[in-house]
């Protein structure tokens, strides 16, 4: 069975993020990771491979050259091969374009099952998975918490729904996006890291996937980024002073009674 995993390299949650002078682009501190939710997808692919005979895990991302690091992380965890679709000079904010490119790759590579994280933690769009499924005309379920093999054509998944879970039976080929809680992603073993360092990761030019360059550039994007801005500055905290905890607590009670009016 062919298992395809789409991943994204994203800025670390602790990385400093600055808005550049033009207000239209971001400067991100050089700290990047495999996207949090994609780690679950890679892990689930590896677990699936142990359940299904003759499976192969292919990992792919649409990103800059740097994203090869995230692909190596996936190989270190246990993926079999990886591809980088190079977006140099084609960077766009439009998930439709990214989804089209990934779906063209999937058509070329072939697949029985596609996994990816429920959303990237940088733009938090959460749109790619469902869109790729639509472009490929296959069913999908978002934010899955459990993936069970029913037979070689059907999977039973549990998906996160507000205030509960839904159980859904899905016919393959299909796409699933992974939610936190589905598994505990492994930390790569040193042997995996060695393998990943040596792995040959082919770089693909997106214009060779059957899409025209005009379709890939910013101009065709249906969403225009106007500006980035930092959140509004919050007023400085008002410190409640006092010589003793007793005094401070007294003032706090007054505040809760008179200003916040919850007592």
């Amino acid at each position: 069975m062919k298992i395809l995993v789409f991943i994204k390299q994203v800025a670390d949650t602790e990385a400093r993020i600055l808005i550049k002078g033009d207000n239209k682009s971001l400067e991100i501190e050089n700290k990047y990771n495999l996207n949090f939710f994609d780690e679950f997808a890679v892990e689930e692919a590896i677990r699936l491979k142990t359940k299904l005979k003759d499976s192969k895990i292919t990992v792919c991302t649409y990103g800059g050259k740097k994203a090869i690091e995230a692909l190596r992380t996936a190989i270190a965890m246990g993926a079999d091969q990886a591809f980088l679709i190079d977006n140099t000079d084609l960077d766009t904010e439009d998930p439709l374009i990214t989804a089209r490119i990934l779906s063209e790759f999937a058509k070329k590579e072939g697949f029985d099952i596609i996994l990816c994280g429920r959303q990237a933690i940088d733009d938090e769009n959460g749109a790619i998975g469902a869109m790729v499924a639509e472009f490929l005309n296959i069913p999908h379920v978002s934010a899955i918490l459990k993936l069970d093999v029913k037979d070689d054509k059907h999977m039973i998944v549990e998906s996160d729904a507000e205030g509960g879970k839904g159980t859904i039976e899905v016919e393959l080929p299909a796409l699933f996006t992974t939610q936190k809680g589905i598994n505990e992603p492994r930390v790569p073993l040193i042997t995996g890291v060695m393998k990943a360092m040596k792995a040959n990761i082919p770089v693909i030019d997106p214009t060779t996937l059957g899409l025209k360059k005009e379709e890939l550039i910013k101009d065709t994007s249906k969403i225009e980024v106007l500006f980035y801005e930092t959140p509004k500055a919050r007023p400085p905290v008002k410190i409640i002073d006092g010589e003793t905890p007793q005094e401070k607590a007294k003032k706090l009670v007054k505040l809760l009674k008179e200003e916040a009016k919850v007592l």
Partner: peptide
């Protein structure tokens, strides 16, 4: 902007090639 809302919105946008902004 819930699990199901995101899923439906992205699927629709993909199907009809519509622009999408989430959250």
């Amino acid at each position: 902007h819930s699990s199901s809302g995101i899923e439906l919105a992205s699927y629709l946008a993909g199907k009809m090639s519509l622009p999408i902004i989430t959250d």
